[in-house]
């Protein structure tokens, strides 16, 4: 079972906090949240907000990396051929490249091409699973930065209408 959230180590403690704070867990998180503000703060200013507003893959990648990737068998992307629901599409990236420092996941046909990007310090594996929204049938591209170069893998994911309402 999943570990319970927050700085509170145990269930009873959490419930005490809940009782004290009333409904809604936001208050419960207050002590941790203050710390989080400090922790994420340094990186928050690095958020590449302009990259996430680019409409095309090329514009987003040029802005983020200043260059374009080359397709490589060392770059791996696992995504469904047909999405069950475009709102939740599991995407798994991985690479057999040394020293990957950045991974970016792009959905070419989305209103904004860049879906998410990860900075990897030394020791962190380029294998990352996450879930993205696809607005329609699109190529999904995983881009890896390694040794100052960019490598990519592409997979087309069909997004169809569900029948079951």
């Amino acid at each position: 079972m999943a570990e319970r959230n927050a700085s509170s180590p145990s269930g009873p403690r959490r419930r005490q906090l809940l009782a004290a704070a009333g409904p809604g867990a936001a208050a419960l998180l207050a002590p941790g949240a203050a710390r989080a503000g400090a922790a994420v703060g340094a990186n928050a200013s690095n958020y590449p907000s302009k990259v996430f507003r680019q409409k095309t893959e090329a514009a987003a990648l040029k802005l983020m990396f200043g260059k374009m990737p080359e397709a490589s068998a060392a770059a791996k992307l696992t995504a469904p051929r047909i999405a069950e629901n475009g709102a939740v599409v599991p995407v798994i990236v991985d690479a057999t490249l040394p020293g990957v420092t950045t991974v970016a996941i792009i959905a070419k046909e989305n209103p904004f091409a860049m879906a998410c990007a990860y900075r990897l310090p030394p020791g962190t594996s380029p294998a990352i699973s996450s879930q993205v929204k696809l607005a329609k049938t699109t190529d999904v591209v995983a881009v890896f930065e390694s040794g100052g170069k960019l490598f990519s893998a592409t997979k087309n994911v069909k997004v169809t209408l569900g029948g079951c309402g």
Partner: peptide, 16 residues
């Protein structure tokens, strides 16, 4: 077949 079983498995790895 074709029901998205792999996606279901991935999504329920940490169930929503």
């Amino acid at each position: 077949p074709g029901s998205g079983r792999a996606q279901w498995k991935q999504i329920t790895e940490f169930p929503p």
